[in-house]
């Protein structure tokens, strides 16, 4: 009974949070609702007994949404409402509804036909974390490693992109050097 209560409570909370995320025009509300929704999702993992995935959900998504906050802080005045440019509302609603229905169909079809079955039955005696590890390093080893390499590439390219002119320090240069540098920069723009 407690499980049912918890499930419906968190289902309601999650859906309402994501509803706020989509509908509000206040950036801070949207981001906070997104973070709250992501954390409420972890409750489902805990209800299903997948503690490890639940905790990972909290850790990963709280960090990810934190990065979104950083962008929000840089791009908006988060205390004001954002004026959205809206095109044809009918097209937006139509496409949104169709894609939502499609996604629900894709995930619900196997459940309805009863084809969903666990490919990796629980190993007796192994804990939650070990289960995840075993699947990850046997069946899904290649996707796991590919994802790891992709992340490494992304990290290195991030460093390269952000690291331009990092050896230049305006505080260590004197006035003339700075002026000279500005002139050089302007030259490149004009030519």
């Amino acid at each position: 009974m407690f499980e049912a209560i918890a499930f419906y409570l968190f289902a309601f909370l999650t859906i309402s949070m994501f509803y706020i995320t989509v509908t509000t025009s206040q950036a801070l509300y949207a981001l906070t609702a997104l973070a709250a929704g992501m954390i409420f999702i972890s409750a489902f993992f805990f209800i299903l007994g997948a503690d490890f995935l639940g905790a990972v959900q909290i850790v990963v998504y709280s960090g990810a949404v934190m990065a979104l906050y950083a962008f929000g802080m840089m791009f908006f005045d988060t205390t004001r409402e954002v004026k959205e440019k809206q095109g044809n509302k009918a097209i937006i609603f139509g496409l949104g509804t169709i894609s939502a229905v499609l996604i629900v169909l894709i995930f619900a079809a196997p459940l309805v036909s009863g084809n969903a079955e666990a490919l990796f039955p629980m190993t007796p005696g192994a804990g939650n974390t070990q289960e995840v590890g075993m699947v990850l390093f046997t069946k899904y080893l290649v996707p796991f490693e590919v994802a790891a390499v992709m992340l490494l590439v992304a990290m290195i390219s991030g460093i390269v992109l952000a690291g331009k002119k990092m050896d230049l320090s305006l505080t260590l240069m004197n006035e003339d050097e700075i002026r000279e540098m500005r002139r050089e920069e302007n030259k490149k723009v004009l030519s």
Partner: peptide, 24 residues
């Protein structure tokens, strides 16, 4: 059985307080 991960994750979420308070 994932105590440490849970504790650190939730403590990390705790930093949302200063973040939201500061931004709002």
């Amino acid at each position: 059985n994932i105590g440490i991960l849970y504790i650190l994750g939730i403590m990390g979420v705790g930093l949302y307080g200063p973040l939201l308070g500061g931004m709002a």
